[in-house]
Nucleic acid binder design. Sequence first.
DNA 1: ACATTAAGTGATT
DNA 2: AATCACTTAATGT
Length: 210
Amino acid sequence: MIEDLQKYYGYLFEEALLEEIADVAIAKEFKANEVIIDIGSYITSIPLLLNGAIKILREDKEGDDLVLYYIEKGDTCAMTLSCCMGQTKSKIKAIAETDVKLLMIPKQKMSEWLSKYKSWQEFILHSYHSRLQEFIDAIDTIAFLNMDQRLLKYLKDKALVNQNETISVTHQQIANDLHTSRVVVSRLLKALEKKDKIELNRNQIKVLEL
DNA sequence: ACATTAAGTGATT
DNA sequence: AATCACTTAATGT
């Protein structure tokens, strides 16, 4: 575990902090598509991603999902941070996009380190900043972009977090993530294929422009 | 060969 | 952009 820490966070944190993390953190692993955090659950520790990617979704009362953004290695979850501080229930759902390895930090430690380690404080602030930025992007995408642009962005994001230009999904799954219908997805994908942006196969989409 | 699941398409709202 | 109804294609048993 300490090796992984060195590898992904060694350049960010000083030795003493790395040791403390190694001391209190609980290593966890999730398989792709496992639910990591569900809506309404209380958060008592915050995650540090070691590898893999997590998708963050919002869910309506009918159980329909909408993908907001992805978290990758070296990231933490700002939503979780704010939940920890405010003692509130999670407003979002987190699902493992790929197989994921992460460390859970008890929240007491997380606030203790804020005053103890400059690097930790910077990490948390920076994380807040970039998450907020992504949040604005996500709103822009949903509010101002046409569905076809949204779809293309979704495909690109997915290809990026999976580190593979070929992604394995059905049109139905995409429709669920974007909160639209399968027929619409099929049509837009067809259109994108005609523009040579992607290649289509059953259960597979290859993104040509990354 | 048959059933099931994924994808494509025209028409309608 | 959503929904319906239907077709076609790919895949599993």
